[in-house]
Amino acid sequence: MGRATEILRARFADCFLDAHEQHGDETVVLRPAGIAAVAAFLRSDAELLFNVLMDVTAVDYPGRTPRFEVVYHFYSLPRRARLRIKLPVPEDQPEVDSLTPLWKSANWYEREVWDMFGIRFRGHPNLKRILMYEAFEGHPLRKDYPIKKRQPLIGPMN
């Protein structure tokens, strides 16, 4: 078991759900409520030193409850270590805390997750669409959005 998993399991036992190390990628599954505290800890802890939030994305698992999974990839530049944190997010209340106050990189990534999956980030300063246009309805990377459903601004449907 990786060092980060051990520490998180001991320190954040109340929101720790699961951990695995498939293909060598250290992965921790947490309850969504804990993410802001965990991220602040990861960033400031002198041993872990995860100073870069590399990526924020989500995965849609239709038929599974909770339906969505928000996936964070952290990177520690001094230790050259990676950590993936996953948060199961229910379909009826797709909302997690924003990490924008901690990392500037979270700003655009979270906007993209909102645009593509419709997951809201609590406390985000400017949560609006980033890749699609405002007139676009729905969230295209959800599995139930048909790949060819076009919503043109001008011109015919196809």
């Binding site: 048909p146 060819k148 459903k149 919503q151 043109p152 001008i154 011109g155």
Partner: peptide, 13 residues
């Protein structure tokens, strides 16, 4: 690119 984001030929415009 036959999907929701792309125009299927600019001659539609």
């Amino acid at each position: 690119y036959d999907n929701y984001a792309t125009v299927q030929g600019i001659d539609t415009l």
